[in-house]
């Protein structure tokens, strides 16, 4: 027999992803993500730094100096962040379990109806919800958190449902066929695989909450919104713009944190 040529036949069974070293690096963060991950904080640092330099050097009148006092701003910043965090936590703790329940066989039919109801929360203007709830339940932080939660509820609910529905059903059946209980399939297969989508919803919720928290000042719930209102009422553009800028920076930072969360939540092996 002839055996002069030893050209290997074309590979018939090629991996679905590059092997070895290349794949190890591709498992990390993609270029685009990296740009956002490093770029956003840098942008925030520039904005904040520029503003701080202006604040430290500008000639401010009495009202401006009082409403832009460092201590006050730090306090308002903290309040704003707390409102955002509390409402995001409330949403996560309610919308994710509800989304899980609505993808179980027993309640699957109810999902569209519930999503429609949750849609009201978002379709109504945020400030409307806030004021109506405050008239009904009174002023203060808890009511602000409730209003923000209602407003940010939909994206998390919807993404939880979509994420779980998007899990390959043959994997779920394979898991059941191997003898995993329903709960362990949910915890070990479905949720990890749906987590990136769910986390994208959480990020959206965070961004909605941080923006809407600017209205919290109307019902005495604090936050950076008061800087803006002070600027408006007292005709101080510098204060008004400072308030807007600080909220924008905070929103960018929260969005950034959300992106990091998304990335961390994506299971290894799926990045």
């Amino acid at each position: 027999m002839s055996s002069d040529t030893a050209t290997p036949a074309p590979p018939t069974d090629t991996p679905t992803a590059p092997q070895g070293e290349r794949s190890r690096s591709s498992r990390r963060v993609s270029r685009d993500d990296l740009g956002l991950l490093l770029g956003l904080p840098a942008l925030c640092a520039v904005l904040l730094g520029g503003w701080a330099v202006w604040r430290a050097t500008a000639e401010l009148d009495d009202i401006e100096a009082r409403s832009l006092a460092w201590g006050l701003l730090v306090q308002l910043f903290g309040e704003h962040l707390l409102l955002t965090a509390l409402s995001a936590a409330a949403v996560v703790l309610t919308a994710i379990p509800l989304g899980i329940a609505l993808t179980r066989p027993a309640a699957r039919r109810a999902a569209p109806a519930v999503v429609t109801v949750a849609n009201f929360g978002q379709a109504a203007p945020a400030i409307g919800i806030l004021i109506l709830l405050a008239m009904w339940l009174g002023f203060g932080v808890p009511v602000a958190v409730l209003a923000l939660s209602l407003y940010a509820f939909l994206p998390v609910l919807q993404n939880t449902i979509v994420g779980l529905q998007g899990v390959d059903q043959t994997l779920v059946e394979a898991a059941r066929g191997m003898g995993m209980s329903r709960w362990s399939v949910l915890g070990r297969i479905e949720l990890p695989l749906a987590l990136p989508v769910i986390m994208a919803g959480v990020r959206t919720a965070l961004v909605l909450a941080v923006g809407t928290a600017a209205f919290a000042t109307f019902i005495n719930a604090g936050g950076l919104g008061s800087v803006i209102t002070t600027g408006l009422y007292l005709f101080r553009n510098s204060v008004l713009i400072s308030g807007g800028l600080l909220i924008a920076v905070l929103a960018l930072l929260v969005d950034w944190a959300g992106r990091v969360l998304e990335l961390v939540a994506t299971p290894k092996g799926m990045r």
Partner: peptide
């Protein structure tokens, strides 16, 4: 239980 494609859990 073995099914088509292996159905491995990707994560």
């Amino acid at each position: 239980y073995v099914i088509q494609g292996g159905s491995l859990f990707p994560h």
